[in-house]
Amino acid sequence: MSVDHLLQTIPPLTVYLLVGFVVGIESLGIPLPGEIVLVSAALLSSRHELAVSPAWIAVAGSAGAIIGDSIGYLVGRRYGMALFGRLGRRFPRHFGPDHVRVAERVFTRWGMWAVFFGRFIALLRIFAGPLAGALGMHYPRFLVANALGGIAWATGTTLLVYSLGVVAERWLSRFSWIGLVVAVLVGLGVSLVIRARTRRLAESYAAESDD
């Protein structure tokens, strides 16, 4: 079975649900590759024979981001900063003390803007909901920033990748599935770069705190 034939057997609804679920779980505070799933799904939508709609990909990504962040907010509000101690033991690479310290400083300084722009940054994306709740940010303000950030991130990413996929299909009509592999690899590369920069930022903040 060819890759193209295999892709055509995937129901579009399954793609939408997968995007919403993974993005939602990541937004809840569990480190999953939400951005990579969104990028891959958006690229699939550029293949018109697959009947996957980029508009529904954007809707699914936006809904997952908003709902996941809101649930994360409620969890953070309920358990406070003690929650991050538990998460740190379970996910030390993502919720270590230095990462929490960096995220807390960013949220304390920037408030709603941290929630909005945090959607575009890997570290802050998984912290946004729980940390905003733990720090006692008023929910209406959080919801506005969360909704606008989630919609801008999901819609912007989907439209950009969809457009690139359409262009790639014109040039690689026989091998357009390669674009999916390339997109995943690029997404992984970007994630690794962001993680490395975040780790250096966390180390610099930790050093400042120790001084």
Rank of each mutant, 00 (worst) to 15 (best):
A82W: 01
S62M: 02
W110T: 00
F91L: 02
P140M: 06
F142Q: 12
I151Q: 02
G88R: 11
D69S: 14
L74K: 13
G111I: 05
P97S: 08
G111H: 09
L131W: 12
M81P: 02
F117R: 07
L135C: 05
V75L: 15
P130R: 10
A128M: 11
L131Q: 12
N146L: 06
R78L: 01
I71C: 04
R109V: 01
R109H: 14
A128E: 05
G64I: 00
A147F: 15
G64E: 02
L131N: 12
V102P: 01
P140V: 02
L143D: 01
V144Y: 10
R119D: 02
R105H: 15
A103I: 08
R78D: 00
A134I: 07
A134N: 11
L123R: 04
I67A: 14
A128L: 14
L87Q: 01
R141F: 06
P92H: 04
L148M: 14
P130T: 05
D69L: 06
L131I: 12
P140R: 09
S70D: 06
G149Y: 08
G80S: 13
R119N: 08
V75M: 13
F127H: 04
G85K: 08
G129T: 07
M137Q: 15
E104T: 15
G129I: 03
A147P: 09
F117T: 11
R78W: 04
L131Y: 13
R89Q: 10
P130Y: 09
F116L: 15
R93T: 00
R125V: 04
G88M: 08
G136A: 09
G76R: 11
M81W: 06
P92V: 00
V144D: 03
V115G: 07
L143F: 14
L124A: 06
I121Q: 07
G129K: 09
H99S: 05
F142E: 11
Y73A: 07
